[in-house]
């Protein structure tokens, strides 16, 4: 069993790596002030498109709303170079994938957000995804 202080150190390492590879990289190219860093939303839906592109990657997700309609969300992530080094791949998300995505939503209520973490149907996670 992992000792408490070792676990603590490990958690800090994970947090530091996650922050350096995901959080900050969203802001590498432009202001990130359109996103609410204090709030997260959890979106459960289907990947429509994964744009593995510069200056940022985008995940288009189709999310059923409470009213029964399907809403398309635009989730902005980091830069491919740094995401690749953190373990992402161009096919990390594929159209049709069932996903749960955690994001900092746009402050003005638009259907966009900054990627925080995701869990795929096979249980693998990317970024910061707490169960």
């Amino acid at each position: 069993m992992m000792k408490e202080h070792e676990r603590s150190r490990t958690i800090w390492l994970v947090v530091a790596l996650t922050l350096s590879f995901t959080c900050f990289s969203v802001a590498a190219h432009h202001s990130g002030n359109m996103f609410d860093r204090e709030r997260t939303v959890e979106l459960t839906g289907t990947v429509k498109e994964f744009q593995w592109t510069n200056p940022h990657i985008w995940i288009q997700v189709l999310v059923p709303s409470a009213g029964g309609e399907v809403e398309e969300w635009s989730i902005e992530g980091g830069v491919p170079n740094r995401l690749f080094r953190a373990g992402w791949r161009p096919a990390s998300f594929e159209p049709g994938d069932e996903v749960m995505i955690v994001a900092n939503p746009m402050i003005d209520g638009a259907k966009g957000g900054a990627f925080v973490g995701a869990k795929l149907a096979d249980g693998t996670t990317l970024g910061r995804f707490a169960e």
């Binding site: 592109t53 200056p55 940022h56 985008w58």
Partner: peptide
Amino acid sequence: MFDVACAENNRN
């Protein structure tokens, strides 16, 4: 090394 070619798909 990879391209960070900003004009590729700038949605901001």
